[in-house]
Simulated assay, not measured.
Amino acid sequence: MLIQKVTINELDSLTELFNLYRVFYNQKSDVNSARKFLTERILKEESVVFIALNGHESLGFVQLYPSFSSVSMQRSWVLNDLFVKETARGQGVGEKLMKTAIEFAKETGAKGVLLETAKDNTTAQRLYEKIGFIREGNYYYYFSN
């Protein structure tokens, strides 16, 4: 298995995975919009994406968005998306993608990697805690639309 940073050259493979990811979260399949969204993120350098490949088969991806802490005056990365194809689950793909994201954060001098997950997503929580993430209990999460 190869983990590599996505460029526009991997857009087709990433689009397939990203569409499956959105469908997993009960969104309507929309390959064209997914491709447009990803193209913009890549070309505008608004996110960093790593993809797991086995030969020509795409297995999963992780997408990071930059953030900054005014208090520490450091960059951090928000791990917004992690997805592994159903047929590739249980093979360590997610763990390798997560470790790549953490290493990338270190290489860019970031304070760390932040992520959120649903309370009932215990499978993901076990993975995050296994590789060293600590559940934050001192803050509340708010959202407005």
Rank of each mutant, 00 (worst) to 15 (best):
143 F>Y: 13
61 F>D: 07
35 R>V: 01
34 A>M: 04
42 I>N: 02
49 V>R: 00
59 L>G: 06
68 F>K: 05
141 Y>H: 14
85 K>Q: 13
102 I>V: 15
67 S>A: 13
62 V>D: 03
116 E>V: 07
125 Q>F: 07
106 K>H: 14
49 V>P: 01
68 F>Y: 15
15 T>C: 14
72 S>C: 09
114 L>K: 12
32 N>C: 03
141 Y>W: 03
7 T>N: 15
79 L>K: 03
5 K>S: 11
89 R>I: 01
92 G>F: 04
58 S>W: 01
59 L>P: 02
55 G>I: 08
89 R>E: 02
10 E>P: 05
53 L>E: 02
75 R>S: 11
109 G>T: 04
15 T>R: 05
8 I>Y: 09
66 P>E: 02
64 L>H: 07
31 V>A: 07
55 G>L: 04
5 K>I: 08
144 S>T: 09
76 S>I: 06
45 E>Y: 00
57 E>W: 00
19 N>I: 07
119 K>Y: 05
132 G>A: 05
65 Y>M: 09
143 F>S: 14
45 E>F: 04
112 G>Q: 03
50 F>E: 01
137 G>K: 15
36 K>D: 12
11 L>E: 12
17 L>T: 09
86 E>W: 00
73 M>C: 11
3 I>W: 04
14 L>Y: 03
13 S>T: 06
54 N>A: 07
